[in-house]
Design a protein around this nucleic acid. Sequence first.
DNA 1: ATGTAC
Length: 480
Amino acid sequence: MMPRSSHGSTPRVSVPGAPARRPWQDQLRRDPRGFFCLQTEATRGIEVRLFLTPALLEELDDDVYGQILNATSFPGVKLVVITPDVHSGYGVPVGCIILTDAERGAVAMGPVGYDIGCGMISARSQVPVAEATPERRLAFNREVTRRVAMGPGGGSRHLRDLEQDEFLRIVRGGADYYVERYAPQVDRTRTERNRFPVDDDWEVPWGGRGRPERGIGQLGSLGGGNHFIELQACLQTGTLFVQVHTGSRGFGHGLATNYFHLAKAEKPDRITQLDLGFFTPDSRHYRSYLNAVSAGGNFAIVNRLIIYEQVARAFTDVFGAPLDLVYEISHNLVQLEEHPEFGRVWVHRKGATRAFPGGHPALTGTMWEREGHPVLIPGSNFDHSFILRPLPGARHSAYSVNHGAGRRLSRAFAERHLDRRAIEEEYRHAGIVVNTNQRVPIDEAGPCYKPAGEVVGCVVAAGLARIEYELAPLASLKGD
DNA sequence: ATGTAC
């Protein structure tokens, strides 16, 4: 039996204090290419493209506007794109893409964030959905819980006591090194990038502010917050899928913290928080920070591969069949790309996912060159997730789409106003097994997120991507 | 996001 759509029953919760109409909305003009455009004195003449439905626009927090203006404030910005899952971040919105000039522009820190390289990995099976009985959903969660550490502070279970030298080889060599040395069975062609290049003369700032060395013992651990592992039913194939969301743990966080303090020391008058931190090419830390992003990105990729292997073992134990990797991709990075309108640019994706359609030069010679690479979009653990394929229209959004449903309720608001018992009962009724005790982290529950179908619908309507697979949650694992 | 602030 195919599970029914769950997102339709996600209750709309009105956000208190949001005025019915905000003046900045009146400055938006509709562009015939399928987005709203904001280009004013306040944006310094920089074009901001907003991919939003009127309803999603209506519910935006007031401070998102201020954060959009922050996003236009970095030196050498050429374009800012807002995705339909946008919500308030720290200084720039989560759900934005910032293009800066590759030769003279800034590489900005906030638009990469603390969780450098955070992203998704998805796998599919040929196991019919009916095999996932309630008992097996719980068994799957138990088997995964045995193999993967979850929650803040969680440590590595499979690369314990890693020597610093070997850790360095991993964060320098990325998936190329990891797969060759540890996991030759993993298909390396199914990652967004196998390895971000790290200069030989760059050194991890061991012992620096942020202490990135705490990441050494964390390879293969999930983390907390919105990181998760999920067993899913695919509506198109009628088979089981699995999806993982995780990032660079204490390593990326430590690197981001370290370089933020260096940026602050350089421009104490201007840079007061990570979100406003940036380096221009004349900074002595410019190349060094880019190396840190590469190393953090490599950690995140390998972290996802390790967890995927463990989840695949759990899956095989419970369902007696293998998982096949679909794709691995980040939504928190800065990468050098060639853009038809803007030339060579640093593309910062903060809660946004790369979306190269078929025919994009960067895909030439890969298995994705005709149809584009898969794009992995999680919904909440009470809602559907999606695997998309980019379309040529994605050139208007800097070859990017959203990264999820987008938060709608703040964690604090959720803790205060959501009814835990009622929510846990809803999950039980929907047959969604949460962890091994059905305890739903309340600040991560379904109502905390926008309806994924509405958000993805906006991306589809704008011609950025098409839906390849829609996935309903069966079992959800979250730390913390 | 994060050995959950300075």
